[in-house]
Amino acid sequence: MRYHRPETFEEAVRLAAGAPGVTRFLLGGTDVLVQLRSGMVTPDVMIDLKGIPGISKVMRTEDGGWCIGAAVPGSKLGANADLVADWPGVVEGIELVGSTQIQSRATLTGNLCNASPAADGVPGLVAASATATVVGPHGSRIARVEDIPTGPGSTSLEPGEVISGINLPRRGENGGDAYLRFIPRSEMDIAVVGCAVNLRLDGDAVVEARVVLGAVAPTVLVLPDAAELLVGTALGEGELEKLAAAASAACKPISDKRGTIEFRTEVAGVLAKRAAKIAYSRAKG
């Protein structure tokens, strides 16, 4: 295995495009090194991106949104009070990944590119309509976060392409988001089910909603119909029960060592209700 530490994205892309065999980009390493150690993936080339200036920065954009550099670890996002105020659901997603130790290293971009159906960082991003800036051999492009993972362990990124950062839109007034996941312990587990909800209110009424499930299908599920049930309501018990039923109905889970189909289906509805309530109260301010 060769280890490279490029100082520009252009160099990183050039290295990746010209590399023989298996290439992996290294950010926090919390997935890549586990795969390397277990023999699951033996890269021929490891390209450490953390030497690229600016890659570990969180910046507010001119339009009031956010740009999160690819190498920003979870703990740094949690420490950014303005970002947490805007997008608490996005931040709590990545902050739920692993331990304090993992938080010092694990990144949203890495969580996205690892393409696990259970990634805690992804549903919140998708609910927030986040995009990724993708740099490749032919320049850079903007892609919707929900279009990046295409299945367990696979992404829509072309060979040589790398994500330089993730872009969150302007939060705007009367908005709130939340992410909840179910795990058997209090910490350190992979999500059995995850659910992110992003709302905007006008007075007491929901005017915009996005509901996203994780770990119940090969990729995150965006539930426009379930979200539509919330629009125009003040999230009464009746609407929440309908939301739960819609979320459960949309699930396409598997049974595995972490949970059964029945359990995931049931709990998806429970989390949708609970996340919607939190998002609503945040939107109310």
Binding site: R185, S186, E187, M188, D189, I190, K257, R258
Partner: peptide
Amino acid sequence: LQNDGFLDYRIPVASD
């Protein structure tokens, strides 16, 4: 064996 690690063989952690 499906859970040959501390990730999915879930022993109690301090916060449990």
